[in-house]
Nucleic acid binder design. Structure first.
Lengths: 172, 172
DNA sequence: GTAACCATGTAAGTGGTTACATGATTGC
DNA sequence: GCAATCATGTAACCACTTACATGGTTAC
């Protein structure tokens, strides 16, 4: 259950409303912890109950801006030390490949080309961010942030290469 | 919802009982579609209802051996042509790294070393399988099977390298 | 024959997804 | 002023997880 802690981190970086968070998740955190606005609002409600965050309704506006409280910060530090599971991977394309091996050619080349295109475009986007945000001397904070981005870059690079190899295996 | 189709594929390869499937999932399919025995029994029940598989109670035994029926095979072929989503990644370690960047050093080196060890050991296991099962001329079926294994090898290789880089980023 | 284990299940809980609702704000 | 959009939700559903149950089989 990392969503509340991802939200706490995001709120530490900058106090935000639910919709702000939904947008920021979409553009940055989504690649390692995607969340919809429904999840985010539900979780913000729980976190307010727990006393981890505080909601400030904007004067003249329907928005509520949330701030991380000291209890939220303490919870984040406590949680960071908990054991971490290796993330589970569930890839329906590999299931399809196994079905192809069992049944004979199923015409999966199109699926593989689609996926290759997705990974190539994500990789290009991440590399652009790396150039823009980390093309200089880095302090510790920036080095850790870059390590997070490098996880995405490494993942997409590997995926691109694998797709090409798998296409060759189907083709030959 | 790929579990039923992973099970159909497994049953095509060899008719099996629920506990057989649970064991085989653990040793091979688990790395791209893990499932517990509870999930497997429930799904086998649904698949029998749907007429995709047939259950044969063993004479003198509590085991039920399931076989894939033609309708199951047809369903598998139909499903293989459906669009495939790129799998979602949710990695709580990256959330922790982002918290570290926001809060200051949280001592995540231990978590990273644990994960590195996990990936190294999985990688060694996959490479052993690759040597044992694919160290020869390969027909198409074997090439596809090797492509599936290569997905695991590529993933673990990338993860090992990333962990080392991330440890360096925290250390320096 | 009894203890340990094996195969098959049931039940409750949780996080995430999808579909829909509502009222406030902005653009024209 | 009216339509489109925005911010904040509610509700139902579903796959997966975890904990427990039951009755048959095997080892000794």
């Amino acid at each position: 259950m990392s969503l509340p802690h991802a939200l706490l981190t995001s709120l530490l970086e900058r106090p935000s409303s639910g919709s702000d968070l939904a947008r920021r998740f979409d553009s940055s955190i989504a690649f390692f912890w995607p969340a919809t606005h429904q999840q985010i609002y539900r979780e913000l409600g729980r976190m307010e109950q727990a006393g981890w965050v505080e909601a400030m309704p904007e004067a003249r506006g329907r928005r509520k801006v949330y701030t991380c409280l000291p209890a939220g910060r303490a919870e984040l530090e406590r949680w960071a030390r908990e054991p971490v599971d290796v993330p589970v991977v569930r890839d329906a394309l590999l299931v399809r490949l196994r079905a192809d091996a069992a049944l004979g050619p199923l015409g999966l080349e199109g699926h593989l080309r689609d996926r290759l295109a997705t990974h190539e475009s994500r990789l290009a986007a991440y590399e652009e961010i790396a150039r823009r945000d980390f093309g200089r001397e880095l302090d510790r904070t920036a080095r850790v942030q870059r390590a997070i981005l490098e996880a995405g870059i490494a993942h997409e690079t590997q995926a691109v290469q694998w797709c090409r190899g798998a296409l060759a295996a189907l083709d030959a």
